[in-house]
Nucleic acid binder design. Structure first.
Length: 549
RNA sequence: UGGGCUAUGGCCAAGCGGUUAAGGCACCGGACUUUGACUCCGGGAUCGAUGGUUCAAUUCCAUCUAGCCCAGCCA
């Protein structure tokens, strides 16, 4: 898919004007949670710009706050990005640069552009002012450079406790941009760091660390989301005053929000802890691991992201748009197989009892490379319960009913004659007769069937578990509904279905179930029972008409 | 009169002074079909509002309105 958005244009111009020879980008996650579909925009945008403009792409963990981070997330983030196919050229950690960052901070101190403040958290907040009122200078703002040097060294050497002192940039307490009101750039935290262990007692703040990380790595274009727009002046200030050779340019784009999906860490954790989902990789979640388990192809995610462009406006994209790309991709690549989600027995009364014949079925209508297979057919077959109604409901009904004839795809025409019901009046068997003249491929043109339905042979089949998913949140709910009330209790429906006997797929294999939808083999599958997840249903114009009537 | 950003059909989104205002999703018709799938045809907006500049504005200017972000020793 062709990429053409405002950032691409900026980069092209920078290359044309010889400002840069290439685009060097990065994705800088903090290892404190799982990646979700929204992050895919940032990952793919940064990655694709480097790829398109001949540079390279770094994965850099922004691990500057040890008390919030965990190496467990490092692994899941790496796995997800790798799965997306956004291979990084370098793997870095912000913590790799702690020494240099400290030195650059000291440089600021020596230039009189940073000072150590003894104020408490609360005092700093008070003096910072409000959105409408300017802040006031800290009483420690004008300490001598010598004193600041000593104090900052002492902070580093553990002379003070957490919170006792901070290092602040000396900028402008009256700025209308809150970020410029002498931001704290180092704080004391006696915490174990997953990477540097106990080496550091002081840690740099994002606003100071991030521009340095970018500059150190020679990032040319630092692409991030809109909420950092206000930070750009500070970003530039840091790069400018720390004598960094490379001067990266931060460019912001709008975040990708998906309508009616759960992305908040707090909510996901709640769902996980209350066992309302199977884990962080539940197929109903739009975490990247959830999408992967759901069987969403990474290609569909890339196409989805690119098709949305890169706007600066914020809106909520409907998940259907992703599904469309999923169908588009799977429709071309996934082999088609017969499977019955809700089996109903069909007995062909005039078919010989012990005979089994094999019919040839292509694995894909257009893609001949996927080959074909021989499928058994006998007196007893399963059809989809929804493909039979005793009485034809309307003229549009193109399935089986009593007195109606349909084609069992790739086999014969069958005409339904009677039904057998259980004590509750539920149909458990349909009896029919077939017409040997109508064998598929025979060229029979005598009459037209009332539709085509598929089947799985009733003597050669495998029982499987099929999981159907709906959105985790209800489609509609009261405006002030609590999260609990929004959760859709029917988001998971488990069916006992049957598939062709010869199928022996592996976890992650994707198929189209004929006339039904796309499915993937779930990791919960065992040697005894395969478990299929419905990725997305096939579109159906029938349902729409039905709803109308 | 704190600062920054955004505003095009139900949803997303092109367009950057002269276009019949792209395209996708969704929706509604119809054709085709041994997947009611795929594919193919057809259907809808005057561009947040109001004023201005101009021969000409969705595109420039002004004002207004609405929404989002910013007062972590989070990122």
């Amino acid at each position: 898919m062709e990429i053409n958005h405002f950032i691409d244009t900026i980069i092209e111009n920078d290359i044309k004007s010889k400002k840069h020879k290439e685009a060097i980008t990065r994705f800088p996650p903090e290892p404190n949670g799982f990646l979700h579909l929204g992050h895919a925009r940032a990952i793919i945008t940064n990655w694709s710009m480097a790829k398109k403009h001949g540079g390279h792409f770094n994965l850099r963990f922004d691990d500057t706050n040890p008390i919030k981070e965990d190496s467990m997330f490092v692994d899941s983030i790496k796995r997800d990005i790798e799965w997306l196919g956004c291979h990084w050229d370098n793997l870095f950690y912000a913590s790799d640069y702690f020494e240099e960052m400290y030195n650059r901070a000291m440089l600021l101190v020596e230039k009189g552009l940073a000072y150590v403040d003894d104020l408490s958290n609360e005092e700093i907040r008070t003096l910072r002012g409000t959105l409408k009122e300017p802040g006031k200078n800290s009483p420690h703002r004008d300490r001598s450079i010598e004193e600041n040097v000593k104090l900052f060294q002492a902070m580093k050497n553990g002379k003070y406790d957490d919170g006792e002192k901070v290092l602040r940039a000396k900028i402008d307490m009256s700025s209308s941009n809150m970020n410029m009101r002498d931001p704290v750039i180092y704080r004391i935290q006696r915490a174990y760091h997953h990477n540097t262990k106990d080496k550091w007692l002081i840690y740099p703040m994002y606003d100071f660390a991030h521009p340095l990380e970018d500059a150190i790595e020679g990032i040319t274009h630092s692409l991030c989301s809109l909420e950092f727009e206000d930070h750009r002046p500070l970003y530039d200030w840091v790069v400018e005053h720390t004598k960094m050779k490379n001067k990266p340019r931060q460019i912001e784009f709008g975040r990708l929000l998906i309508a009616n999906q759960v992305t908040g860490k707090r909510y996901i954790r709640e769902l996980v802890e209350e066992n309302k989902v199977m884990g962080w990789d539940d197929p109903r979640l739009i975490t990247l691991s959830g999408l992967r388990r759901r069987g969403i192809p990474k290609k569909a995610i890339h196409n989805f992201i690119h098709s949305l462009g890169l706007p600066k406006s914020e809106g909520e994209t409907e998940i259907e748009m992703l599904y469309q790309h999923v169908r588009e991709h799977l429709n071309e690549t996934a082999p088609v197989t017969n499977a019955i989600v809700e089996p109903l027995k069909l007995v062909i009364d005039n078919y010989p009892e012990d005979e089994v014949e094999y019919v040839k079925i292509p694995n894909h209508r257009r893609n001949k490379e996927l080959g074909s297979r021989m499928v058994p057919f006998s007196k007893h077959v399963f059809i989809e319960r929804s493909d039979f109604l005793e009485e034809k409901p309307n003229r549009k009904w193109r399935r089986l009913s009593l007195g109606e004839e349909v084609r069992l795809m790739h086999a014969y025409f069958v005409k339904a004659n009677s039904v057998v019901k259980d004590d509750n009046g539920r149909i458990i068997e349909v009896h029919c007769t077939y017409d040997p003249e109508t064998k598929s491929g025979s060229g029979f043109k005598g009459r037209k069937p009332n539709g085509n339905i598929h089947f799985v042979d009733g003597t050669h089949y495998k029982k499987v578990e099929i999981r159907l998913f709906e959105d985790l949140l209800k489609e509609e709910y009261e405006k002030d509904a609590s999260f609990e009330e929004k959760v859709n209790p029917n988001s998971l429906v488990i069916k006992k279905g049957v598939i062709e006997e010869k199928m022996s797929p592996e976890i992650g294999d994707k198929f189209q179930f004929m006339r039904n939808g796309f499915y993937v083999v779930d990791k919960d599958s065992t040697d005894k029972t395969l478990v299929f997840n419905r990725i997305v249903p096939l579109r159906s114009s029938y349902k729409r008409k039905k709803r109308k009537n």
